[in-house]
């Protein structure tokens, strides 16, 4: 009898504050997540099924907004521009970043300084980067124009020419985000074991074979992660384009982010814009998942 009461007492102590404590400690974080992540997501999903006028929902239209997207030539064009932009930028960034990381793996005088300097573009506020590039690209008083005139050419037409503006945007993105690739890949390279490389040297491999047979295969998972990260990020590029070209000239640099922004805030089609962004979100999600699946398969084989 005494023993049973004692046992119940212990159980009750265990069932009280002790059990609730983990949930209590989780609660603030959970509230924040609910407030800033889950609610806006749900609100956005709800908005994407409505029609708006003057900023207020007027009717539920079901999936009509989603259906309309695929017959909207402007949307399809912006999607195409975005895919081109992402593919070009990310591949340049991957190649350049890998090359720089390989170079910076060697120890020599000033290497620490060089590694630090290479990171700088990444830490500058994107809007500031865009302003600097506008100063470089400007056709009247830009640096490129100055350079061109110094060697006897005319004004450099960058932002006024559709193709040049697009290339200019890619260059900006490569300049700003190669450091991220560089950083991830350098960390990856530094974490590789030394011995297989020494073994390969003894076994008779030259620099190129060491790279092709060892470095690259061993780095593939890291490279894949870096590319996935950058791809997701590049799909959401907004501020640089907004400052540099606002999507122009014409639709040459109008990424989906800019088109969605215009739809929502210029044309006040909140519901349609929400549907657009939900769609893009799903596309990026699908990309990320398939990339991760691909990664796993490479890993497992």
């Amino acid at each position: 009898m005494q023993g049973a009461r004692q046992a119940r007492k212990y159980r009750l102590q265990g069932a009280g504050l002790d059990l609730a404590l983990p949930y209590l400690m989780l609660a603030p974080g959970l509230m924040i997540v609910l407030g800033v992540l889950i609610y806006p997501l749900w609100d956005g999903l709800r908005a994407s099924t409505r029609a708006y006028r003057y900023g207020s929902p007027i009717s539920d239209v079901g999936l009509q907004n989603y259906v309309r997207l695929w017959s909207d030539a402007q949307f399809l064009n912006s999607l195409w521009v975005t895919v081109k932009f992402v593919a070009l930028s990310v591949s340049f960034e991957a190649v350049l970043g890998f090359a720089l990381a390989l170079f910076c793996l060697h120890e020599f005088r000033g290497i620490r300084l060089l590694r630090t300097v290479l990171i700088i573009p990444m830490v500058i506020t994107p809007v500031v980067v865009a302003i600097v590039f506008r100063l470089i690209y400007a056709s009247d008083a830009g640096m490129l124009t100055a350079l061109s005139e110094a060697i006897g050419g005319g004004e450099a037409q960058i932002l006024g020419n559709p193709l040049n503006a697009f290339i200019g945007l890619v260059v900006l993105d490569v300049w700003e985000w190669t450091p991220l690739m560089f950083l991830i890949l350098l960390a990856g390279l530094q974490s590789l074991p030394h011995e297989p490389f020494e073994a390969a040297r003894v076994d008779g491999a030259g620099a190129w074979r060491v790279f092709a047979d060892l470095t690259f295969p061993m780095m593939r998972p890291v490279l894949a992660v870096a590319i996935v990260l950058r791809t997701i990020d590049a799909f959401g590029t907004f501020d640089q384009v907004f400052v540099l070209t606002r999507g122009g000239p014409g639709e040459a640099t109008r990424l989906v982010s800019i088109y969605g922004y215009d739809t929502a805030f210029k044309f006040q089609q909140t519901g349609y814009a929400a549907a657009l962004f939900v769609t893009i979100g799903l596309v990026v999600l699908a990309l990320a998942f398939s990339a991760i699946r691909l990664l796993r398969r490479v890993d497992a084989s």
Binding site: P196, D213, P217, M218
Partner: peptide
């Protein structure tokens, strides 16, 4: 550490 080539 044997230094085998992990991906081969």
């Amino acid at each position: 550490s044997y230094a085998l080539y992990p991906q081969m």
